[in-house]
Each structure stands twice: as structure tokens, then as C-alpha cells.
């Protein structure tokens, strides 16, 4: 098997560059660069969808790449709208091409999912959707990393994985494993991990998990109050 050379990172966060998807995607891309692969210019899907010219560039970029890495959040148990739209565009483009060409046979398609919830079951459905898409498009499944309780990585605040110290340790280690496999042209394993220790969700340390949730909930109320709003408002009942 020829080792892949050109890697295309697609970031599917509607938040754009200030997102956990950007932070994790950029991290793995840098690892692959260090291993001698050639990263193509990263594409933010929300930006791509703004014009037909950019969509055309996106379609050509995917064709030119030897490996695709999609980093996107989990919204409502599945992909964000912008990612579904990009998938539909890729499929429509493939249908328009001749049947003998433009399939992505053998091209690795890897996915990193960022999920706010800590439980394992949340990202399962979206990974099945991505696998199914990869199969239909002729991609080779390149493995996945499902990050749970990903809000703790603070990508929304524009932080990189290096900015947040030990909180990102497990994620970085998983991305190193992913990069090791992909750099050899092999699919990586399907991994899932929680940024917050699993023991915070169940067992004797679950009170710590409850504390984090309390902090999170208090934060929303404070933010709303600061703006003179009530976080519990029911505008459509008025």
C-alpha cells in the first residue's frame, strides 16, 4: 500500500476557528506533518458553504488529498448541519462524475467527534453515520476518536490543547496514536475517551462530576444575569 502523503483537515464546527474541533484537528495535523506527511490548507466547512467558488475549491481539495480528517462537534446526536451539507455536496459531486473515475477508493477518512456529554453512547450514532458515508463514497474507514465532555478542552474560548495543560493529556495521547497509524497509511483504532475522568460519572468520586455540572449550570445562570436576562425564560409561552 502506498503511504498517504497529502492530508486534508476539514473542520466541521459552526464556531469556526475558535472551537475544540479546530484545536484537536490542528494538533493531529501538526503531528502528521512532523511525520513527513503534507498537510493541505485546512478547510472550515462553515466558511466553504458561503460561496459556489469555495464549494468548488472544497470538492477539488478532497479529490486532491490522499487522506481526509474530519473534526466536528456532535449536535443533537448527529452531525452539525454544515457537515451534512458538505457530505451531500461530496456525494452529489461524485454522482456527477463518470462512474469509472473520482471514487475515493483506498483514501483514508478519519473522524474526530467532540461531544459535550460524558457518556459513551452519545457519539455512537454519528460514528455509524460517518462510517456509512465513507463506505458509500468509497473511502477506507480511517478510524475515529470520540471525545466526551469535550467542553473541558475550552476550544470555544480559543484555547489550543497545549494551552490547557494536563486536562488535554489523554486527548493528546490518543491523537498521537491516531497520527502513528495514519502516518503509516493504516487506519487508526476507533477510540472513545472522556476528558473528565470516568470515575467522576460513576462510583465514589461521582460527587466531583456533580460539582463540575453544578459549576457549569451556575455559569450559564451568571452569564444570563450579567446581561440582565433570566436563564429560565420561556419566551414562547408569553
Amino acid at each position: 500500500m502506498t503511504h498517504p502523503k497529502r492530508v486534508q483537515l476539514l473542520v466541521g464546527s459552526p464556531r469556526g476557528k475558535r472551537s475544540t474541533s479546530t484545536a484537536v484537528g490542528s494538533y493531529v495535523l501538526n503531528l502528521l506533518k512532523q511525520k513527513g506527511l503534507e498537510p493541505l490548507a485546512s478547510l472550515w466547512i462553515g466558511h466553504i458553504l458561503k460561496s459556489p467558488e469555495k464549494i468548488d475549491e472544497f470538492l477539488k481539495a478532497v479529490e486532491a488529498a490522499d487522506m481526509i480528517i474530519l473534526a466536528a462537534p456532535l449536535y443533537d446526536d448527529c452531525q452539525p448541519y454544515i457537515v451534512i451539507k458538505a457530505m451531500e455536496l461530496l456525494a452529489a459531486h461524485q454522482r456527477e462524475q463518470s462512474t469509472t473515475q473520482k471514487r475515493h477508493d483506498g483514501k483514508l477518512f478519519s473522524v474526530i467527534v467532540n461531544c459535550a456529554f460524558p457518556e459513551e453512547h452519545h457519539p455512537e450514532t454519528v460514528l455509524r453515520i460517518y462510517r456509512r458515508f465513507a463506505k458509500d463514497m468509497g473511502f477506507l474507514w480511517g478510524g475515529s476518536l470520540a471525545i466526551r465532555a469535550g467542553e473541558a478542552l475550552q476550544g470555544r474560548q480559543g484555547k489550543t490543547l497545549d494551552d490547557i495543560g494536563s486536562m488535554a493529556k489523554k486527548v493528546k495521547e490518543a491523537l498521537v496514536r491516531m497520527a502513528d497509524s495514519l502516518s503509516k497509511g493504516s487506519p487508526s483504532a476507533d477510540e472513545t475517551l472522556s476528558v473528565i475522568p470516568e470515575s467522576f460519572s460513576h462510583g465514589p468520586l461521582s460527587f466531583l462530576g456533580s460539582f463540575f455540572i453544578w459549576l457549569n449550570n451556575r455559569g450559564w445562570a451568571k452569564q444570563a444575569k450579567k446581561r440582565g436576562e433570566d436563564v429560565n425564560a420561556r419566551p414562547y409561552m408569553e
Binding site: 452539525p80 448541519y81 444570563a224 433570566d230 436563564v231
Partner: peptide, 16 residues
């Protein structure tokens, strides 16, 4: 329009 993940519907204009 497209949701941009800003969470303003939670902390700025709750519910809208």
C-alpha cells in the same frame, strides 16, 4: 439561518 454555536439562545436572549 445556520446555527453558529454561539449559545446566545442560552446566555444572552435565553430561549430565543
Amino acid at each position: 439561518g445556520t446555527c453558529i454555536g454561539c449559545f446566545k439562545c442560552w446566555d444572552t436572549t435565553p430561549g430565543i
